[in-house]
Design a protein around this nucleic acid. Structure first.
Lengths: 219, 219
DNA sequence: ACTGTATTCGAACGAACGTTCGAATTACAC
DNA sequence: GTGTAATTCGAACGTTCGTTCGAATACAGT
């Protein structure tokens, strides 16, 4: 019996945290995902063909299907892994920090650092957000919602701590816009590193929301 | 002799400003562009097939090619028209206004109003920025650069008028990010109208850049 | 060296793609 | 109403698409 593909293999992939086997299969799959990310980034999900992915990863067209059962599932794996990682790193970095402003700066820095260090993956995540169909889409959307909620929480904390008044929704979505748009313009030969950009964007955004109208007393 | 297609017909389309013939051809082409915009918005440029466009616009597959010679040229026509219009409207609105802050608020309002009133077209413009190849791409890129330069000018004016100190490039690109990202989240049933959002984004952005460090005297 | 499982591949499938062509139809000037 | 040009269409072109299948190869345990 052959053809395991990611469906059956997810269990073995879970075990990695226990005794770290990191099978040959896991390694090869990660390699393919990496190449696929690069191709999706360059040509877009619809624009990239399975033959492109085959050529780029050095594996035959049919061989790819040993590792995942469809092109869509491949995109799903990329998006899920990328999103899960960025959320997890954020949680680690936030642990122990209590100052509301500092926490937002950490959020911005974490986002931009990961974005620039994994530009291809993050572009695929941002740009191909609508490419997945119902089943796959909802699972990625759930992580996205969690990430969004975290940011809303951070801003609400700042708001109540300093008695500010602004629409959290618009503020959060504006911040995401500022940060995510970076994939359309960032040029490593011209632009500064993530930390500098994070400071600059953080300055504009935080001064923007903090120098606003203070809320009067309730009712 | 049949098959004019947009190549030969551009001249007649130019004359429109003089005596406004607005031929049957022009009207039909505009209709098709409108439907195509909607389909590109929903399924993406690569994801939308000529057969989709045919079905949506009610014209036969072959019939479409009477109006433009390729799918790529169709996207080009949509992008060029959309971009040209928004730049032109901006210039009209800026005429006569001298206050630097007010001019930036006009820029934001113009952008968001047009964005929300022509959401499909603007999404196609934002999302499919890389879909065009060399020839077509450079012409659209030129308009985009002009639009970008206008915004840089507005911010530089504000900077020197108030003696501010920040990176114009990062500020402009952050602003574009805030505004353009709107196509990923705006929901007319939940979110306010363009004017409200423009005010809110303008508040955050302008306070952000204006409450920054003032520049010391030169050298 | 042998055996069984894990991995890879060449070749092909039917479907869908963008585009073309010549004929049919429609609209309009006279 | 007739003739001419503008417009539309059905049918097909050759390519490329995502996916499948059975055979071939590599590898691990004995």
């Amino acid at each position: 019996m052959a053809t395991p593909s990611t469906a059956t293999r997810l269990i073995s992939s879970q075990r990695r945290s226990a005794a770290a086997p990191v099978t040959r299969y896991d390694r090869r799959l990660a390699e393919i995902l990496e190449h696929a990310t690069e191709v999706f980034c360059r040509k877009g999900y619809e624009g990239a063909s399975m033959r492109d992915l085959s050529r780029e990863s050095g594996m035959s067209l049919a061989g790819l299907y040993y590792y995942f059962e469809s092109k869509e599932r491949l995109l799903y794996l990329i998006q899920k892994h990328t999103f899960t990682t960025i959320v997890q790193r954020l949680k680690e970095r936030l642990r122990g920090v209590t100052d509301a402003e500092e926490r937002i700066r950490i959020f911005i820095l974490n986002h931009l650092e990961y974005f620039l260090a994994n530009q291809a993956a993050m572009k695929v995540l941002s740009h191909e957000a609508e490419a997945l169909k119902n089943g796959f889409a909802s699972e990625v959307a759930a992580i996205k919602r969690e990430y969004y909620r975290i940011c809303v929480g951070l801003l609400d904390d700042l708001k109540s701590e300093r008695g500010l008044q602004f629409s959290t929704r618009i503020a959060v979505l504006s911040l995401f816009g500022m940060m995510n748009w970076i994939y359309t313009w960032h040029n490593p030969r011209v632009d500064a590193d993530a930390a500098s950009i994070a400071r600059e964007m953080g300055d504009v955004f935080l001064r923007g929301v903090m120098s606003g109208v203070k809320a009067g007393k309730e009712r």
